[in-house]
Design a protein around this nucleic acid. Structure first.
Length: 295
DNA sequence: TAGGCCATCTGGTCCT
DNA sequence: AGGACCAGATGGCCTA
């Protein structure tokens, strides 16, 4: 089976295709049910007796305990039996706490855990939102693991792009002052798209590995093959995020601004008064489809 | 039907 | 002691 990331309507297992629409299911269920509702409902039930308050798991657990204590047919127990069971359970398993107290504590803990997981999901949703991936109602929600892996790759891509931009800037302007000798008069006719005259064309294939201070050494395509993300090998293999930054119409491929040497400020010339090289939107990058969607 | 993804419960551990 | 965090177990939903 390998990598099964469900995105496209046809749900190809791997990220070999761009995300595709599937209006039928963004998420068939809320990321988290109304926590308070659940908790309150459960609490409400608990008022009428703990045997009806417990979840199925709790019921099972209770049944197990009842079995351990030699009591069978828990649901048919009378109140006296329940009280007896509670006493016996409290004596053996919970010492001083009554069942109701235990139940209350358990519900409280469960509620906290639900809230914690809900917060985690909210954060995950926030991460999904900033992921330059296809958004919209017609796009299936990224799974958690997909979100994390994609985010990681995205960060790597941005880091590499940034480092490469810095390198290029220093390469271009490092030896001279502003417009160090190559820039045509007042940026007259020069297109910023092509290779800079007198400067070697950037070859990503020959780029030294860029090390990001926040990343482990050798953050490169090789490092992306770490076992930790082996589950998405095909994702990596086909994922546009993992291409060498700047390739083609990447951040530096088609346009970049002149930068004032030493100032880090954009060149004020008219030619350079264009939007800064945007971070390539991954939604614009042909993302591999995750399914066998023929589109 | 199998497998993936997810929410929830639960008990354990660690921290404050 | 209480809360946060974690991982295992469980069951539901969905898709191929």
């Amino acid at each position: 089976m390998g990598c099964q990331m469900r995105f496209g309507s046809n749900n190809s297992p791997c990220w070999t295709q761009t995300m595709d629409s599937d209006t039928s299911r963004v998420s068939s269920r809320p990321s988290s049910p109304e926590v308070d509702d659940i908790f309150l409902a459960t609490l409400k039930k608990s008022v009428h007796g703990f045997t009806s308050a417990v979840s199925s798991t709790q019921s099972d657990h209770l049944s197990e305990l009842a079995t351990l204590h030699g009591l069978h047919g828990l649901h048919s127990l009378s109140e006296e039996d329940e009280d007896s069971l509670a006493l016996r359970l409290s004596k053996k398993d919970h010492k001083l706490l009554s069942e109701n107290e235990l139940q209350t504590i358990r519900l409280k803990i469960n509620s906290r855990e639900r809230k914690r997981m809900h917060d985690l999901n909210v954060a995950m949703d926030g991460l999904r939102e900033v992921m330059p991936y296809a958004h919209g109602p017609s796009v299936r929600k990224l799974s958690k693991i997909a979100t994390l892996l994609l985010a990681r790759n995205y960060i790597l891509m941005l880091s590499n792009s940034l480092e490469e931009m810095k390198r290029l800037v220093s390469e271009i302007y490092g030896s001279g002052g502003h417009h160090g000798g190559f820039h045509p008069a007042a940026c007259g006719t020069m297109t910023h798209a092509g290779p800079v005259p007198g400067h070697p064309v950037v070859s990503h294939a020959s780029h030294p590995v860029v090390h990001h201070p926040l990343l482990p050494p050798a953050v490169s395509s090789a490092s992306l093959s770490a076992p930790g993300i082996s589950a998405v090998t095909s994702v990596r293999a086909h994922h546009g995020l993992l291409k060498a930054p700047g390739a083609g119409a990447g951040p530096l491929g088609s346009s970049f601004q002149h930068w004032g040497v030493g100032t880090g400020m954009p060149c004020p010339c008219s030619m350079c008064q264009v939007p800064p090289p945007h971070v390539t939107s991954m939604s614009a990058v042909p993302m591999p489809r995750l399914s066998g969607d023929p589109k």
